[in-house]
């Protein structure tokens, strides 16, 4: 499992995270998976050696609110500690990805004044086939960037990053 993305992608996510500070930012990562583990029939074969290539970022609004908190049985009403992606935004990204023969391969979000380490809430709500990239923002400035994937025991493990100068579309 490796996530390939460009320095521009990281810069864009950092900028997004700083812009929304002290709230969490969030967005989707569109791209391709080498060794084709995005096909429906093949999704069960967890491709440990798969390489996920981010081609497009899809920043969205953090739509966490009281209603989402209630629906998810989460006590935190604050966007400073939680994020949610509205179904409208997800649908738009799905359509965009399909039209370009891409897939949603991951989600990024920020942790304001916290390390770039998944929280228990992140773990609880995470999906197996996505990469989860987290940006730590300390006092409004980005400090670290890590990516994570769930293992077979539903625990997050660091996902190796390969940062390229550019990604060819």
């Amino acid at each position: 499992m490796t996530l390939k993305l460009s320095a521009d992608h990281i810069q864009a996510m950092n900028a997004h995270a700083e812009r929304t500070y002290p709230d969490e930012c969030c967005g989707l990562m569109l791209g391709n998976v080498q060794e084709s583990d995005t096909g429906f029939a093949q999704m069960n074969q967890r491709a440990e050696s798969s390489v996920r290539i981010v081609t497009t970022l899809y920043p969205v609004e953090n739509s966490w609110d009281q209603q989402v908190a209630t629906d998810l049985q989460d006590e935190s009403p604050s966007k400073t500690r939680r994020y949610a992606i509205a179904p409208e935004a997800m649908l738009k990204a799905m359509r965009d990805a399909r039209s370009r023969n891409l897939a949603i391969i991951g989600i990024y979000h920020s942790h304001p004044d916290c390390p770039a380490v998944p929280s228990e809430c992140d773990r609880r709500l995470a999906w197996q086939h996505y990469s989860y990239s987290i940006i730590s923002v300390q006092q409004g400035k980005t400090r670290e960037f890590y990516s994570w994937r769930l293992d077979v025991d539903h625990q997050f493990q660091p996902e190796p990053l390969v940062i390229l100068e550019t990604i060819s579309h």
Binding site: G39, F40, P87, M90, L91, M94, R95
Partner: peptide
């Protein structure tokens, strides 16, 4: 219609 589309989120077809 959008709800149905969301139901097919994992499909690449």
């Amino acid at each position: 219609e959008e709800n149905l589309e969301m139901g097919a989120f994992v499909l690449n077809q």
